[in-house]
């Protein structure tokens, strides 16, 4: 059973007679109970896609269905069964934690008690502050409250638009742990993020850039598409090292990656030897050269260039 089906969706925005394509001819599907990641930078079209799927926008072309319901014709049914957490914190800042949750339970015709089991793990962490106004919560707590509110009616599909943007690394880790618990409850989760490292936490991902999908696969599958050997190099003077490597005409790309530079050659062959030559010529010390497995970010950058 497919929870979400997207077929050839396109959407244009016209601002001052200038049309920009937010989404062009996007197609994918999400299986039931899957965590599907939409990975891409700001402006890639992630929010537009989520708004189309949550019936807030109508696409210019193409078809989409959530839980078997058409997003245009049957939007009322979708509104009953989808949970949505927009990118911007969208709760009432002047209402308390409990008032917010009660409100969202009521407008979905349910009560906190009815589905407490589903949100228990998450809500318990913020329950000590239930009389505090939502506007006075920390970033991590706001995020937990927003997730509780999106879950309170036991949605079958959960749409999370950049839930971890601007959240620190610790809260991000906790958030993803929560998502995996929800997955075990059978909820389908569509989540978007600009953080490439979060891709590995999804079952499948779609890499998206400028309204186009670059690749759809499992995180492993995406990295398998990376055909050329990838090299990680480090030495004492990293910035100069990058400059030297980049001037080599045989180098296709060289990007800093944490403490290493990741390098791909145009015509792979004696890659290691060529790197060693560069290091020798530049009199670098403490050099280290490794052949490594690419990660999602390597793939994303390679796909962006294509």
């Amino acid at each position: 059973m497919q929870s979400v089906v997207v077929e050839n969706i396109s959407k244009k925005y016209v601002v001052k007679k200038k049309a920009t394509e937010a989404l062009s001819d996007i197609s994918f599907h999400v299986d039931k109970g899957e965590i599907f990641g939409i990975i891409g930078p700001d402006g890639a079209g992630k929010t537009t896609l989520f708004r189309i799927l949550t019936t807030l926008l109508v696409a210019d072309a193409g078809k989409a269905a959530v839980d078997g319901f058409d997003v245009v014709k049957d939007y009322k049914q979708i509104r009953n069964r989808a949970g949505y957490m927009p990118g911007k914190f969208s709760l009432y800042q002047d209402l308390s934690v409990q008032e917010n949750l009660e409100f969202f339970a009521a407008i979905f015709n349910t009560t906190i008690q009815e589905n407490y089991g589903l949100i228990k793990d998450i809500y318990q962490q913020i329950e000590p502050f239930r009389t505090r106004k939502a506007g006075q919560l920390s970033g991590g707590m706001k995020q937990k409250l927003a997730l509780s509110c999106a879950l309170i009616h036991k949605p079958s599909v959960l749409f999370l638009d950049e839930p971890t943007t601007g959240v620190d690394a610790v809260s991000r880790k906790e958030f993803w742990e929560m998502l995996h618990r929800l997955k075990r409850e059978g909820i389908t989760i569509l989540v978007s993020t600009p953080y490439m490292d979060e891709a590995s936490l999804c079952d499948r991902v779609a890499l998206i850039q400028k309204g186009k999908i670059l690749s759809i696969d499992t995180p492993k599958g995406v990295t398998k598409q990376f055909r050329k050997p990838l090299w990680a190099v480090k030495a004492n003077e990293m910035y100069r090292l990058m400059m030297d490597i980049k001037t080599d005409p045989g180098v296709e790309s060289c990007y800093p990656f944490g403490q290493y530079h990741h390098i791909v050659f145009k015509n792979p062959g004696d890659d290691k030897k060529r790197l060693e030559e560069i290091i020798q010529k530049g009199h670098f010390t403490n050099a280290e050269i490794n052949n490594i497995e690419p990660n999602i970010e390597d793939c994303f950058m390679a796909l962006m260039k294509e």
């Binding site: 891409g40 930078p41 700001d42 890639a44 943007t165 601007g166 600009p194 490439m196 850039q209 910035y239 990007y255 800093p256 970010e297 994303f300 950058m301 962006m304 260039k305």
Partner: peptide, 24 residues
């Protein structure tokens, strides 16, 4: 203050090149 939030990975690295240059 969080200069690179939400930027694509290539631009993010180009941004860091600017930082290196300023530093040098």
């Amino acid at each position: 203050d969080e200069p690179t939030g939400g930027v694509d990975p290539i631009t993010r690295r180009e941004f860091w090149n600017l930082i290196y240059e300023a530093s040098s």
